[in-house]
Computed example of a mutant assay.
Amino acid sequence: MNKAFVKESDNDDDDDQLPESIALPAGTKNYMTRQGYDRLRAELAHLMNVERPEVVQVVSWAASNGDRSENGDYLYGKKRLREIDRRMRFLTKRLERAEVVDPAAQPNRDQVFFGATVVYSDKAGETFRVTIVGVDEAEPLQGRISWISPVARALLKAREGDTVTLRTPAGMDELDILEVIYPPAS
């Protein structure tokens, strides 16, 4: 098939931002916990040492079969290699900008900073428990929110007993900080 009819580019550098990635504020480091950093490094190592070599082997085998234009293994393998390479570039950039923060070493344990677990209630009296983590570690449904999220920004630097204001699409909400928890110091 003529390349003019295929929607692919030779330059994959402009799409390093994967759809699931969150942009970091300009000029900031990529703050993350040790567990988050280790998870990203493990994913990068797996892609480099396991997944990519396996796909390269399949693509080489498929290429040796002759006609590549209708060879599904070859076409899919090349596409998968581009995806793996894109993810590896993304992870490499994120890890280069990473600054690992140990929440257990936080000296001001009564104030909300990165890594704190915060128990708070809203105006409706509903209680929430969230841990402030890096953008690549956030899992809101598990109570792990990014430090750049609106809720985390409202909570940061507040103390137990404080009331902070959170701007939401529905209007202003007040959050009462009930408890600030850090991991035990090592």
Rank of each mutant, 00 (worst) to 15 (best):
R52N: 05
L91W: 00
R97G: 12
A62G: 12
P140G: 08
R68D: 07
P107W: 02
T92D: 13
K123V: 14
A98V: 03
P103R: 02
P140V: 07
E20N: 11
R129H: 07
F90R: 12
A104Y: 01
R97D: 13
W61Q: 15
I22D: 10
D16A: 08
M32N: 02
D38F: 09
R39V: 09
E51I: 14
Y74E: 07
E137F: 00
T131H: 02
A62R: 13
E70V: 13
G77D: 05
D15S: 08
L75E: 10
Y37G: 12
N108C: 08
A104K: 03
S69P: 01
L91D: 03
V130E: 02
R34A: 15
Q57R: 14
E137D: 02
P103Y: 00
V112Q: 00
D110W: 00
E137S: 04
E70A: 13
R34I: 09
D14C: 08
P53C: 11
A98C: 11
R129A: 13
G134K: 01
V100H: 04
G115M: 01
Q111R: 05
P53D: 09
L40A: 15
F90H: 12
L18M: 11
S60G: 13
T92G: 11
E83A: 14
L75D: 05
A105P: 13
T127H: 03
K78Y: 05
V101M: 04
E126M: 13
D102S: 13
D12V: 15
H46D: 15
S64V: 12
D67L: 09
V112H: 00
G27Q: 05
I84S: 09
K123I: 12
P19H: 08
W61Y: 12
V130W: 00
N49M: 08
P107H: 07
R41I: 01
S21K: 04
